[in-house]
Amino acid sequence: MQLGFVHESQYCTGCKACQIACKDKQNNEVGQNFRRVTTYEGGGYTQAGNSFTNNVFAYSLSISCNHCAEPKCVKNCPSGAMRKDPQTGIVSVNQDICIGCGYCAWSCPYGAPQMNVKSGVMGKCDFCRDLLAKNEEPACVAACPLRLLHYGEIEELRSKYSGVGTCKVMPDPNITKPSLVLVPHKDSL
């Protein structure tokens, strides 16, 4: 089994409720966000005679660790602190053996592992394993007011949602094979 996330970015308003819920649940320091909502905007206006047409766009993406099928953070961790659970596919960091070298952060194209400056070790999304053990949703999923963030077994999610694994602002998915489905905004492709 491989757990993963779905983000329906085509409807996301960028409210950051998922980001805040994650930050609160993990009690992260300022600047340490395991889930990040980023808004992308662009386009402009073109004059055609006496009128203007536009191709203005804005869309938001909510991204955390993608619990990749081939996580570079695990492969490049010299202490073995970064691990992929063979039962769930969840990639986590054992902070008791993390040496704070940052190799995992350098290896991850998504910026998922992040340093906790106070403790000197890395942290990242752990899929709210404690909540899953109680049959509860991850904090980010539960917090989404528009219900646009989902989780589950990645192959089931890929069958259920007609989405893609990446968009033009994200790294090549062939690098790590992320467990992520995006239902993209039309301007993100």
Rank of each mutant, 00 (worst) to 15 (best):
94 N>Y: 05
33 N>Y: 12
60 S>L: 00
42 G>D: 06
12 C>F: 01
82 M>A: 11
97 I>Y: 03
77 C>D: 03
120 G>Y: 09
7 H>F: 09
112 A>G: 08
80 G>W: 05
150 H>K: 15
137 E>T: 03
177 K>Y: 06
174 N>K: 15
58 A>K: 14
126 D>A: 07
156 E>P: 03
102 G>A: 07
165 G>K: 10
108 C>D: 08
148 L>M: 06
151 Y>F: 15
15 C>L: 03
13 T>Q: 06
84 K>E: 07
25 K>F: 14
28 N>W: 08
62 S>V: 04
170 M>T: 15
79 S>A: 14
23 K>L: 05
63 I>Q: 02
186 K>T: 10
174 N>T: 14
41 E>K: 12
99 I>E: 14
132 L>R: 10
4 G>F: 12
156 E>G: 04
104 C>I: 09
83 R>A: 05
151 Y>L: 00
86 P>I: 07
36 R>F: 00
55 N>W: 09
162 S>A: 15
58 A>Y: 06
32 Q>Y: 04
37 V>D: 03
28 N>Y: 11
44 G>C: 13
96 D>Q: 12
117 V>E: 12
30 V>A: 13
140 C>R: 01
157 L>P: 07
111 G>Q: 13
121 V>C: 08
24 D>S: 12
174 N>I: 07
38 T>C: 03
13 T>S: 04
153 E>D: 12
146 L>I: 02
139 A>I: 02
134 K>T: 11
56 V>Y: 10
65 C>Y: 04
106 W>V: 15
148 L>E: 02
180 L>F: 15
27 N>P: 05
89 G>W: 00
90 I>L: 06
118 K>Q: 14
50 N>Y: 04
21 A>I: 00
109 P>Y: 13
60 S>M: 05
175 I>Y: 07
20 I>L: 15
112 A>E: 03
87 Q>P: 01
62 S>G: 01
120 G>P: 06
2 Q>C: 00
153 E>Q: 11
32 Q>E: 08
77 C>H: 03
92 S>A: 10
27 N>S: 14
51 S>L: 10
65 C>L: 04
30 V>T: 13
120 G>V: 08
157 L>V: 09
188 S>D: 13
153 E>A: 07
75 K>M: 11
133 A>E: 15
90 I>R: 01
47 Q>E: 14
61 L>S: 01
1 M>D: 09
185 H>Y: 15
73 C>H: 04
171 P>C: 11
91 V>Y: 08
28 N>H: 11
165 G>I: 05
2 Q>T: 04
26 Q>K: 11
186 K>C: 06
29 E>A: 08
63 I>N: 06
10 Q>F: 11
102 G>Y: 06
27 N>Q: 14
59 Y>H: 10
111 G>P: 12
45 Y>H: 14
17 A>L: 00
166 T>Q: 10
68 C>K: 00
3 L>T: 02
2 Q>L: 06
152 G>I: 00
3 L>Y: 13
171 P>A: 12
117 V>M: 08
102 G>D: 05
18 C>D: 01
157 L>H: 07
178 P>L: 07
181 V>D: 08
156 E>L: 12
25 K>E: 05
30 V>M: 09
155 E>R: 13
